[in-house]
Design a binder for these strands. Structure first.
Lengths: 245, 245
DNA sequence: CGAACCCTTGACAGAAATCAACTAAGGTGG
DNA sequence: CCACCTTAGTTGATTTCTGTCAAGGGTTCG
C-alpha cells in the first residue's frame, strides 16, 4: 500500500489513539487496492474477512431481498464500513459497491479482532465508532417510520445544504435513483416529490438544488436534532452528509 | 439494590468478563428501582445519565416526531438499553417506558465510561454488545425498506413461533397496537393484515396465534438469515424475540 | 356500573408503487 | 463527427397499499 495513505488513515478517529506499534501491525496485514466504478466489493451473506477503509472515491452500502434492493448508506473518504460484521465475525448484512473509481484499504478482520483485545485505546475508539454507527442507524429507522416520503426528501435537502458554501445552492453528489432508494421510495416518487417541493421553497435544475425559501421548506418538515443530527467522529454517516444541525 | 440481582447481572454478556473489582465498582454506584406499568423512564433528547438494565418486567423503546410516535424495540429481562447514548455522552434518541411492573438497575453513565477505559475485557464486551445492537437496527431498517406490511407481519409471526414449545401455537406477549407500531403500520392495517394471513396458514384468536400451514406462510414471506436472524449475545433484540433462524 | 381502552370493521382518502411512454444526456464505435 | 445505444430521469395513467375517520363490540379496572 502507498505510504502516503498511512498518515490519513492514522488520523481517523478509529485509529487515532492506538499505539503506534499496534497500528503498524494492523497496517502490515492490510493492503490497498484501486477499484473501477460499479464493482461489487462485498456481497451480503458472505463471511466478514476485511474491514474496508475508503481512501478515495465512494462506496454504496445496499441490501437486497427477493427482487427488491435498497441503499442503506454511502461511505465517502475517509470512512470505514462493515466494522460490526468484522467484530462479530458474522456474515455481512449489506453488500457494497463502488460508485466511482475508488481506492480502498482492506484490513484483515482477524488482525482487527486480535488488536483491539490488546490495545485498550483502540478498543475505546472501536466503541465510539460502533456507538456512532448504531445511532446513525437508529436515526435512519426513525426517519423511515416517522416521516412520509416528501418530508424525508425535504429533510434530506436541508441537511445536504448545511455546511456547504453559500448555504443556498448545491449539487447532488449522487444519482437521484440512489437518493430515492436511500430515502425509501421509488425514483418516480422522488421525481414527483421534487416537483411538489417546488411550491415550498426549492428549485431543482438537473443536479442543482436551490433552497430559495428555507422557512417554507422547514414548514414542510422541521429538522430535528434527534433525527437529522450526526454524532461527532462518525466515519460512516449516511449519504455523504455533513455533520451538524 | 438487592444482592440477589447481582449474580444475574454479572452473568450478562456485557458484564460477564470484566474484573470482579471493576464490576463491584460499577455496581456500587448503581441502584435498583421498581417501577409501575406505563411509567416513562427516559425521554428522548435528555442527556444520558444511566445505563438501564431490565431485571424484571419489560420496557418499550419508542420515538416521537411531531404528532407521530413509533415503537423501536422492546427490552425483556435480562437486557440493557441506551448503552450507545451513555457511551457517547449524547442525548437519548429514544424514549423508554415500562410495559408492566418492572425492576430496573440504573448504572451511572460516567462510571460506565470510566470503567471500560481501564478494563479491557469490559471494553471488549461493550464492543460485542454495540455491534449486536447495530446489526439488529440494520435488520430493522432493512425489514422496513424491503418488505411490505403484510410480509413484515408474516415474518414477525414466524419468528415469534420459533423457539417456543410446540412450534405451532403461541401467545402474543405484547399489545397488538405495539406490534403494529414496531412493524411500521397502523393498528387498523395490522388487523387487516392478520385477516389477510388467515388465507395463508395462520389462525388468530385474540392473543393466540396458530400457524397451521407454515409452508403457506413462508410462501408469503420466506424468512431470511440476514433479515430475521439474530446475533448471539445480544441483549436488546427487538420485540422480545427468541434467537435463531 | 360506568369509563376507559383495545381491537375490529367499514367507508373513504391519500400516499406510494407499478406500468408505460417519452425525453435527455452520455458514451461507443463506426 | 455523427449515428446509435444505453441509461437516468420525467410524466401520465392506473392500481395497490396504507392511513384516516367513524362506529361498535368487548374487556378491564376503578
Amino acid at each position: 500500500m502507498r505510504t502516503e495513505d498511512l498518515p490519513e488513515i492514522r488520523h481517523l478517529p478509529l485509529f487515532r489513539n492506538m499505539l503506534q506499534a499496534n497500528f503498524d501491525d494492523l497496517m502490515r496485514g492490510a493492503y490497498a487496492q484501486n477499484f473501477p466504478a460499479g464493482l461489487e466489493l462485498i456481497q451480503q451473506g458472505q463471511p466478514a474477512d476485511f474491514l474496508h477503509v475508503v481512501v478515495e472515491g465512494s462506496v454504496e452500502l445496499f441490501s437486497g431481498w427477493q427482487d427488491n434492493r435498497c441503499t442503506m448508506a454511502v461511505v465517502d473518504p475517509i470512512g470505514t464500513f462493515i466494522l460490526a460484521a468484522c467484530i462479530k465475525d458474522a456474515p455481512y448484512l449489506m453488500s457494497a459497491r463502488t460508485l466511482e473509481r475508488s481506492r480502498i484499504i482492506l484490513v484483515p478482520a482477524s488482525d482487527l479482532r486480535a488488536i483491539f483485545r490488546r490495545d485498550p485505546e483502540f478498543a475505546v475508539s472501536v466503541i465510539g465508532e460502533l456507538a456512532s454507527c448504531y445511532r446513525a442507524m437508529v436515526r435512519h429507522a426513525k426517519n423511515l417510520k416517522l416521516r412520509n416520503s416528501r418530508e424525508r426528501l425535504a429533510a434530506y435537502l436541508m441537511k445536504q445544504s448545511q455546511g456547504r458554501f453559500g448555504d443556498e445552492s448545491f449539487k447532488l453528489n449522487v444519482e437521484k435513483r440512489l437518493i430515492a432508494s436511500y430515502l425509501g421510495m421509488t425514483p418516480e416518487n422522488l421525481s414527483r416529490n421534487f416537483k411538489a417541493l417546488e411550491a415550498h421553497g426549492v428549485k431543482i435544475e438537473g443536479q442543482t438544488v436551490t433552497i430559495f425559501d428555507r422557512r417554507a421548506l422547514e414548514a414542510i418538515c422541521p429538522l430535528d436534532r434527534l433525527l437529522d443530527g450526526a454524532d461527532e467522529h462518525s466515519t460512516q454517516n449516511g449519504v455523504g452528509l455533513p455533520f451538524g444541525i
